[in-house]
Nucleic acid binder design. Sequence first.
DNA 1: CGTTAATCAGTAATAGTTACCATTATGGAT
DNA 2: ATCCATAATGGTAACTATTACTGATTAACG
Lengths: 150, 150
Amino acid sequence: MTEHLRETSQRRVILEELGKLTSHPTANEIYELVRKRLPRISLGTVYRNLELLSQSGLIQKLEMAGTQKRFDGTIGNHYHIRCIGCGRVDDLRLPAMKSIDEAAADLSDYEILWHKMEFGGFCPDCITPRSKRGEIEILDIKKNIIGRKD
Amino acid sequence: MTEHLRETSQRRVILEELGKLTSHPTANEIYELVRKRLPRISLGTVYRNLELLSQSGLIQKLEMAGTQKRFDGTIGNHYHIRCIGCGRVDDLRLPAMKSIDEAAADLSDYEILWHKMEFGGFCPDCITPRSKRGEIEILDIKKNIIGRKD
DNA sequence: CGTTAATCAGTAATAGTTACCATTATGGAT
DNA sequence: ATCCATAATGGTAACTATTACTGATTAACG
């Protein structure tokens, strides 16, 4: 009756490849990596294992805003930062602040269990070329829409 | 050449319905509401308008973790809390803390532009029945997977 | 009014993910 | 070592949320 995770080669390789990385790959990126070692693995298997492994607490599933899920080979309470330019996700060495939950609980009727925080910005590789361009694009949009009747 | 938003009945009704709510509906929920007044409106029109209206700053698009986008008729810097039980999203009267961005910037190579924080927990309606059940389910999963070989 | 670009309804297409199912393989029990 | 229940797999279909396309309609300016 006690169902537990079996150690299959697919599961082991997924875990190994994820362990090699300090980045936070998407399911598809993991699929491509694992496929080099197990060419016949199916994408569904990767998804299923990432789900099971994160349920078991062996890896962490990051459900970032608005984008596809990403996975973290290390578990622990730290925040993440996503690059607006290239989409990569890094750890932030800011330890999770549990006191925030209590502060929030005082302000609401909810029973608060957790919070997640996500930072956005430009990574070192994208700062120089893209930050200016990004700002200009946003300004253009606002100008077009806000500035009317002339 | 200056393209600006026209006032169509569809756009007006979407904005009106969104303004009536203090909740944060999904595109589909807005579609259902608007459809009562404009039965022939298309879901694509709702999506297009929510996108345009949020670009113009008239409403706010919330890209919450792992779920579909939600929309906020009021703009302003506050955090949101999502109910684990029923999925509803409420405002939290905790003003956004800009100092967090600076603290994070010191710890990273990124040029940090923003952060978002999302709280999770049980809303008043879901606290009593579901919090216990939710905890038990999670415990069951962990027991099944972690507890092995016995 | 007439013109024209913005917008529309309807529908097809897309991306990411999950579900299904017949077959295979793992791991505890024999 | 072999057996066997069932967890896991590969392949594929289905699904959900969202975006893109298209020809018809309409708001807003002159």
